[in-house]
Design a protein around this nucleic acid. Structure first.
Lengths: 255, 255
DNA sequence: CGCTGTGAAGTTTTTCACAGCT
DNA sequence: AGCTGTGAAAAACTTCACAGCG
């Protein structure tokens, strides 16, 4: 079962590190903004600031793509926009289907960032017959029954899942069976897919939880963690009782 | 130079690595599911599979929290749920405001994952007077004018920005001035904030771009990268025109 | 001179592999 | 016997710092 993992050992992609790939869209956005203001060139320092990273990192990232800058001057904005777009594969058209047209699906359908980056929403799909035919972002919602046909006919290779968690795996399976090989998953579930299919997930609540963690830390600094957290920390550090807090534990203890 | 940076050198938080913190919500979700099915204990192997990571990583992660397992047996599900929740700060109530009630803001307001994890939507705020008073997810939309008052009165320390890019920085500044110290940003902009304020961003189109990158790679593997990418690697290097596929470079070349 | 491109050093994260508890 | 907890090794990523080109 859980087999077939063997996921890529990271750095697969033709030598470009994953961490770098993940930042390319950031640079691209900053560059696009510069381009719109007709700025002809940028230094690594300026671009780095605009993208929210540091300049050494940016230069190193670009070095994986090739030598696209000019020493003593900087980078040609338009040229770099093109090179990064090409590297990301945005110079081609990517038909995308969005499955699950609730609030989130509708938000995605309306999201301008897609269309402007080579992504074309080929269809919106929802399981609720009452939704069928409704126009969202100018497109008619289609029924799930048509999923396979839509994917095949439009040569869709990227699918976006914005359904409730319970429906996600089945939708995923059907998308994959129909030919989709990349999935962006907004449902809070771990999807299992065959080898060769990429899944990326965005979980809105995970980000909030990470923030809460740091927020809690900040509060703790001001008045001693125990008070702020409502629990004694592992008091005497990891010394004391390893078992854990004794007071308000949910009554369940590890045997 | 971007002044006040000095951000924590990562591994700040009481010794727990950032990478581990980022995975705790994942474990928590898997554990919650097990808990609902009344599963009493799990092995690192099982839990790892459910969370989509490998078991060595999971055990290492848990080792930073303390020794909460039982050798030869595994982890007590309820106990672990509690420990992770506490570590993440989810045992306390976090009032949150969502600013920008468009499609995305509404989706967030309706998102169940928040409420069930200690997050309480204290208010929905939008700049459009026409929206004011409308009910979204059972809450009335308030006007931006009231932002400061709402934040202060509810002791909000976490703000979610779901406005258009153009409005994000101003909203951010006002939130911070009013006392917010953690921001979850959905607008496609880099926000600048004073030291001590955390920002996390979620950019929907970035994830798609990363998928496109990998998708492109897959296609390339089938027929030789040079052809698929439209460029020979840095073969002849920057030899002026190694240009594009069939010469469709944007005409701008680096000096 | 100014700024890129990059080896080398430093840091963080992941993985291995096994000692040690139950 | 089984599974956790963890040092130690490996890999990935970041930062430094400077040579070298324009």
């Amino acid at each position: 079962m859980a087999t077939g993992r063997t996921h890529r050992p990271a750095t697969r992609s033709r030598g470009i590190p994953e961490a770098t790939v993940a930042r390319l869209p950031l640079y691209l956005r900053a560059l696009t903004a510069l381009s719109e203001r007709s700025v002809p060139t940028v230094s690594s320092e300026e671009l780095a600031t605009a993208a929210g990273v540091n300049s050494a990192k940016l230069r190193k990232d670009f070095s994986y793509l090739g030598s696209y800058g000019t020493r003593g001057v900087g980078y040609d904005v338009e040229y770099l926009v093109y090179q990064i777009s090409r590297e990301l594969g945005l110079t081609q058209d990517w038909p995308v289907v969005i499955v699950g047209i609730g609030n989130l699906g509708a938000a995605l359908a309306n999201y301008g960032g897609f269309a402007s980056r080579g992504f074309r929403v080929a269809a919106l799909i929802d399981a609720d017959p009452a939704q069928t035919g409704k126009l969202v972002a100018g497109l008619p919602v289609r029924h799930t029954d048509e999923l396979e046909e839509i994917v095949e006919r439009n040569q869709v290779s990227i699918g976006v899942i914005a359904t409730p968690a319970g429906a996600a795996q089945e939708v995923c399976d059907r998308l994959v069976a129909a030919g989709v090989t990349s999935i962006l998953n907004f449902a809070p579930t771990v999807l299992s897919v065959p080898d060769g299919v990429d899944v990326r997930k965005v979980d809105l609540s995970i980000e909030l939880q990470i923030l809460a963690f740091h927020e809690q830390r900040k509060a703790g600094e001001d008045l001693g963690e125990a008070v702020a957290r409502g629990t004694l920390p592992k008091a005497a550090e990891e010394a004391a009782d390893r078992p854990g807090p004794d007071g308000d534990v949910p009554a369940v203890m590890p045997a």
